[in-house]
Design a protein around this nucleic acid. Structure first.
Lengths: 187, 187
DNA sequence: ATATTCTTTCAAATATTTCTGAAAAATGTA
DNA sequence: TACATTTTTCAGAAATATTTGAAAGAATAT
């Protein structure tokens, strides 16, 4: 599998292109998506060099990107008997992959947003009893609005938590998750 | 409101910082979030110049960013009697704002992904009857996997559609949407 | 019509992100 | 230990994204 597989099939090229774009859109590096895709569509684990050749990347880029993918739990290392180099395989459970990313991200992003909103709220509340009526009025408005943001952020957190929890126990949670809702409006 | 309001309150600075980061995280420009925040926390509409001064941006940046925000329906223009310049106000219905962005984005991103996956699937299917057994085997695997991706993309589309539809008819759809699910696992 | 004020545009400047490739480090082999 | 292979690191290069500021363009008032 390390001699022939140096050129991507059209289907592989197409998928790695879209997934690369989607991942980029999602805030990852495009190459993360491209590498994952090639692994995902491969019938056997691939080495860093396989990936380097089929995607025309530098060895450094492959190494760094693979490690990032490993950190996200989106790709894993695989032992191949008799081979010295490492081989890599894609996480094929899509929902698991997504839930991992979501939970990983919400921890850093949403939680820090919640904290920051709480701080801002406290700061606005401090002005509630200003002697200047204009200041008081503005403070009141800001308190209301920041509360909304805070609520929204917490709601987002809960949504992610729920999703992640569902994904953990259920083999096809995405479908269930969705189908619990009214049917889609238009197509 | 155009003379005094040149320095942000700490609460305003804090919120525009977080929201700026969140929006950047979400794939928008940081200044979109910052400008929106200042407007959102303002008790009166602000002019481009107000924003330029309080956020220390160039006039060009303010103009471009405001237009982008207008295009997303996240900010609207407001007439102020007796004033010549335009004034701007933030969309305060958060869920409406989000649903608009979601529906706008899914149209371009998810739909194009679905299409691309379908193409890739067709390409893989074309190899199903290759004379080479190895090729056939690989084609079968790819077909299975691409199908999963396609399903996932369609599911995502449906999720967004459902959300957007809910948001359209309901004043606090986010809450309902969420609360229909089991309570959050951890905090 | 002309002046004044405000908004937009856009090429150049900055800033940020991502990639390359060669050297260093690590890992295994004899 | 010495050697061969594989992986990682990282400074600089390249590619992208964002911002500036000045000039052009609109809009309104006189």
């Amino acid at each position: 599998m390390s001699k022939e597989k140096r050129t991507l099939w059209p289907s592989e090229a197409a998928v790695s292109d879209v997934v690369g774009r989607l991942m980029e859109f999602w805030g990852f590096k495009r190459n993360m998506g491209r590498i994952w895709s090639v692994l995902y569509l491969s019938h056997a684990p691939l080495s860093a060099e396989d990936l380097r050749l089929s995607l025309k990347l530098s060895s450094g880029a492959v190494s760094m990107t693979l490690n990032e993918l490993l950190r996200w739990g989106i790709v894993r290392k695989v032992w191949v008997q008799g081979e010295r180099k490492d081989f890599y395989a894609a996480e094929v459970q899509l929902w698991r992959m997504i839930s991992r990313v979501l939970s990983e991200r919400e921890r850093t992003e949403i939680l820090s947003a919640v904290e920051a909103f709480e701080d801002a709220l406290a700061q606005a509340k401090a002005l509630r009893h200003s002697t200047d009526p204009e200041t008081r009025e503005r403070a009141e408005l800001q308190i209301e609005r920041i509360k909304m943001l805070l609520e929204l952020a917490k709601l987002g957190k809960r949504l992610i938590d729920t999703f992640v929890a569902t994904a953990k126990i259920d083999a096809e949670p995405l479908a269930r998750f969705l189908l619990r809702h009214s049917p889609p409006p238009s197509s």
